[in-house]
Design a protein around this nucleic acid. Structure first.
Lengths: 208, 208
DNA sequence: GTTTGTGAACCGATTCACAGCA
DNA sequence: TGCTGTGAATCGGTTCACAAAC
């Protein structure tokens, strides 16, 4: 099976596999079976084999997978081959935390721009990047080769922020705002809602 | 259909419905149909009706749903009827952002404890709460009635942190660490991985 | 008339189990 | 022999479409 579209559930697991393969490369492991990889990733072996089959046929029967080769293919499928510029929209506590997050660089992401609408924040420097006004966004996106946006604005500002980043040419957006957003054409949006995650976990707590 | 187990996909949508219903209550809306609710939540009407049917039968045919009543049932199903104490484990940038996040209180969550292992951080105050040593966790969980933990520790410390919160009696955990974690018995774990989200979004970017 | 709640059909992902290859 | 890749079976969620209820 060659690279036709990857099913969404598989896509969400690819970063996990990429992380596992990174670790194996770091430890100098050359070959790994689906059983070993699946155990490290926390999935079933059949699931992992099916997932990988959507990318191509990179294993050897009786042997397993070449770790370095497989990692290259997983990375290739995710499009994380090269550095990606990220703009953080909304420089509050969460925006600052994202801008300072050390886990991005090793995965190929670099926060190259920060924007906000608050004059008290614009002009300050966070994680080595000067905060610009939201109006500068279209220019920054072009000049600094921004591929992705992270929205860390209050819920009420999220739709405007999404429209603004879309208008400036960014097509992939990660939102932390607790809102259902109307997604402009051609834009890929993923959302993380911390309060919602806690509410989901509350379901499993013993009742009152 | 009465409240047997709620399917996981439905469970992830309930917080969205809760938010929509909050907004309608705020605007003084008394009744809403599945079509209206679904549009506000960004799902299909049939999906919403099926989801709600897992909670019980609270609509009136020809009329729709009583907004206040439905909200009470959704909240009840999520177990967000009353305030829940939260401990934040790991007081770095992200931990501070979570502790300061204004979106938690309106949804019934209160950060009542912060712990870290770094002596430079222990003893400082963040968002009105003094940071304690990780060793204090079992005592704090009991004394401050902690129901949920948020792990904002480096990846390498995540498994230990999870084991520690589980040992101290917390059964619901939200982790921000980019690791596959082995989950202790009886613990519900959800994970948010910001770098993984960006990698998933990278898939949709134009190739190199 | 309107709208819910739900069987039934559909669709897609997961899992099984084994043929095929190293 | 050992392990992959994948048809086939299975499982579960989504969507359709309509009878029942208001």
């Amino acid at each position: 099976m060659t690279s036709t579209a990857v099913p969404p559930p598989t896509l969400t697991r690819l970063p996990v596999y990429a992380r596992v393969l990174d670790e194996l490369v770091r430890r100098g492991v050359v070959t790994a079976s689906s059983v070993e990889l699946a155990a490290a990733a926390g999935v079933e072996p059949a699931q992992l084999r099916r997932d990988l089959s959507h990318l191509g046929s990179y294993g050897k029967r009786g042997v397993g997978y070449d770790v370095a080769e497989l990692r290259a293919h997983v990375r290739g499928a995710l499009g994380v081959g090269r550095r990606r510029g990220v703009v953080v929209v909304g420089v509050g506590n969460l925006g600052r935390a994202v801008a300072s997050y050390a886990g991005l660089v090793p995965r190929g992401f670099e926060v190259v721009a920060l924007v906000d609408v608050d004059p008290a924040v614009v002009g300050t420097t966070v994680a080595g990047v000067e905060v610009a006004d939201l109006a500068e966004l279209p220019r920054l996106v072009v000049e600094r080769d921004v591929s992705l946006a992270v929205l860390t604005v209050p819920g009420g500002a999220a739709q405007d922020a999404l429209d603004a980043v879309a208008a400036s040419g960014v097509r992939s957006v990660l939102s932390f705002a607790p809102r259902a957003l109307s997604v402009p054409d051609g834009v890929a949006l993923r959302s993380v809602d911390v309060a919602a995650e806690l509410q989901i976990l509350s379901y499993y707590l013993p009742p009152v």
